[in-house]
Amino acid sequence: MSKILELRDLSYVYGMKTPFEKKAVDKVTLSIEKGEFIGIIGHTGSGKSTLVQMLNGLIRPTGGQVLLDGTDIWEKPKEIRKIRFRVGMVFQYPEYQLFDETVYKDISFGPKNMGKSGDELDFAVRKAAEFAGLKDELLNKSPFDLSGGEKRRAAIAGVIAMDPEVLILDEPTAGLDPMGRELLLSQIMQYHRERKNTVLLVSHSMEDIARVADRIIVMNNSKLEMFETTKKVFSHGRELEKIGLRVPQITRIMSILKDKGYDVDDGSLNVGDALMQITALLKKEGKIW
């Protein structure tokens, strides 16, 4: 394993040297391994959005460094666009950025800006559309004629098409219904499995994070509060609640049981996991077979 992203004392202050000076990100130091799936949580205003926008050079840090594969991304400020191709960023409600006549052309905007053309471009677009679960016949439609969920996936394909080494998604499932959320989430997981690249997912949905993340970054008050494995983070239910975050319902149920003296795991992440533990207990006591 090798480090793909390394943050060293990364800081950002809004309105430097004005009366409205406000720390948005305060001395965050951490490193992320190649191929990891990282969840980022924190309430609104905790600094997580500013943090991720510094990772691909959309915001220039006011202090500290971002190292991508060992090199500072601001080493050559004129070439910062190249960094944006390597660290792809999908914003909240990305469907609002669709603009071209057809879905195909819209997806090709990024790779074209990279200088791709011909077969290489065509391959990138089709591959991205496939990853995003867009059927071929949709590619020639106007992006404005798609359904809400399809628009969202087309917009995500536009970023995947640049084939970034790191993919950052800011609340990709916001506003979708359970079916759309489920579909998109499994598409992202499949993309991660097949491409084996690094994915960072910012989300308010703890259930989503619990399902996908290997490790979780917890931001609070512009500082890094925790950076641990998903299981470990969610076993700190009480600390999370103190900073205005909650854990999935199932995790909460199991940790209450543990507090009451039952032999269960307080970092249980999903219903299947909890079910296994409860049935194991019941079997031990001979209540079921």
Partner: peptide, 29 residues
């Protein structure tokens, strides 16, 4: 603008025609 920049949109260089063109991905949305 941030979203299109993240897709490599270049709004700061080129001649006037390319610069005006660069604003299409912002104006349409």
């Amino acid at each position: 603008m941030q979203a299109q920049k993240a897709r490599g949109a270049d709004m700061d260089s080129g001649n006037i025609v390319t610069r005006v063109k660069a604003f299409i991905p912002i104006l349409i949305p």
